[in-house]
C-alpha cells in the first residue's frame, strides 16, 4: 500500500470512529483534495478489500481495513507524541514529522520503536529527567556531565528509587501515587477508593508482624496487604 493510500485509510478510520461512517466529501475535506481524487483512492482501497460502500457515498471499513487503519493511526499518534512530548516539538510540527515518517518505517523497525517508546513513556522519570536535564544544562548536556557527581543531581536523584512502592514507606511517611498497577478486582477496588495518580497517601501504621498496612487516603482509613501495596508505585511527597 502506498503512503497516500495509508493516509486515506487513516482519515477514513478516524471519521468512522467519530461518526460511525465516512463520506467522500468528508474525506475530501479532511485531506484537502477533490472528491474525484478521493474516489480513485477509494476504488483502490476497495480492490484491496479494505473498504466497502455501504450506501451511496457512505463508506465503511472492512474488519481487515479497520485493523490496518488502526495500525496507521497508532503509528502516527505514537510518533507525533514522541516528537511532541519527549523531544518537545510544537504539536503541528510533530504531527507533520510523524506523517512524513510513518510510511517509511518497516513494520519491524516500527515495532521496535514502539517498544522503546512504550518503555520510555511508561516511566515518567526518564522523560521528566530528560526534560529537566535539557532545561537545567541546555542542549549540551553530555553523558560525562551527567555522570560527574553533582553536575546533574537530577538524574542520580531520580534513579535512586524509581520503583518505590507504597510498601516501602515507613509508618508516618507520606507519598504521592505515580502509578497504579494490578488488574481486575484489586485494581478496581484501588481506583474505587480514589487511589489514583497524584493522590497523597499517608502510611499511618502496620499491623502485628508488619502486616497489613494502615493508610490514609482522601481522609479515609484503609487497610491493605503488603502484596497489594506493592502495586501502588509512589514518589516522595517533596519531589
Amino acid at each position: 500500500m502506498s503512503p497516500a493510500l495509508e493516509d486515506y485509510l487513516e482519515t477514513i478510520y478516524l471519521l468512522v470512529q467519530e461518526h460511525g461512517f465516512a463520506r467522500v466529501k468528508d474525506i475530501a475535506r479532511a485531506r484537502d483534495v477533490k472528491a474525484a481524487t478521493v474516489s480513485i483512492a477509494l476504488r483502490k482501497l476497495a480492490e484491496l478489500e479494505l473498504v466497502r460502500y455501504e450506501r451511496r457515498e457512505y463508506i465503511a471499513l472492512s474488519p481487515h481495513g479497520e485493523e490496518a487503519g488502526r495500525r496507521v493511526f497508532t503509528r502516527h499518534r505514537l510518533l507525533a507524541r514522541f516528537f511532541e512530548e519527549v523531544l518537545g516539538m510544537p504539536a503541528a510540527a510533530a504531527s507533520e514529522q510523524a506523517c512524513a515518517m510513518e510510511h517509511s518505517l518497516t513494520d519491524d523497525a516500527m515495532n521496535r520503536l514502539v517498544r522503546f517508546f512504550e518503555f520510555v513513556g511508561s516511566c515518567p522519570n526518564v522523560v521528566d529527567s530528560f526534560r529537566e536535564c535539557q532545561t537545567a544544562l541546555g542542549p549540551g548536556c553530555s553523558p560525562e556531565q551527567r555522570n560527574t557527581s553533582g553536575a546533574c543531581a537530577l538524574c542520580s536523584e531520580k534513579e535512586e528509587d524509581p520503583q518505590m512502592s507504597l510498601a516501602d514507606l515507613k509508618p508516618g511517611q507520606s507519598a504521592v501515587v505515580t502509578h497504579v498497577g494490578a488488574a481486575g478486582a484489586l485494581r478496581q477496588r484501588l481506583l474505587d477508593m480514589g487511589i489514583l495518580p497524584n493522590t497523597t497517601i499517608n502510611l499511618e501504621r502496620s499491623g502485628p508482624g508488619g502486616e497489613p498496612l494502615w493508610i490514609r487516603c482522601h481522609g479515609a482509613r484503609l487497610a491493605l496487604r503488603r502484596t497489594e501495596a506493592t502495586v501502588i508505585r509512589v514518589r516522595d511527597e517533596m519531589a
Binding site: A185, L190, M193, R221, A223, L224, R225, E228
Partner: peptide
C-alpha cells in the same frame, strides 16, 4: 486470586 483486602476502617 485472593479477594482484595483493601478494607475501609470506619
Amino acid at each position: 486470586d485472593d479477594a482484595p483486602f483493601v478494607m475501609e476502617l470506619p
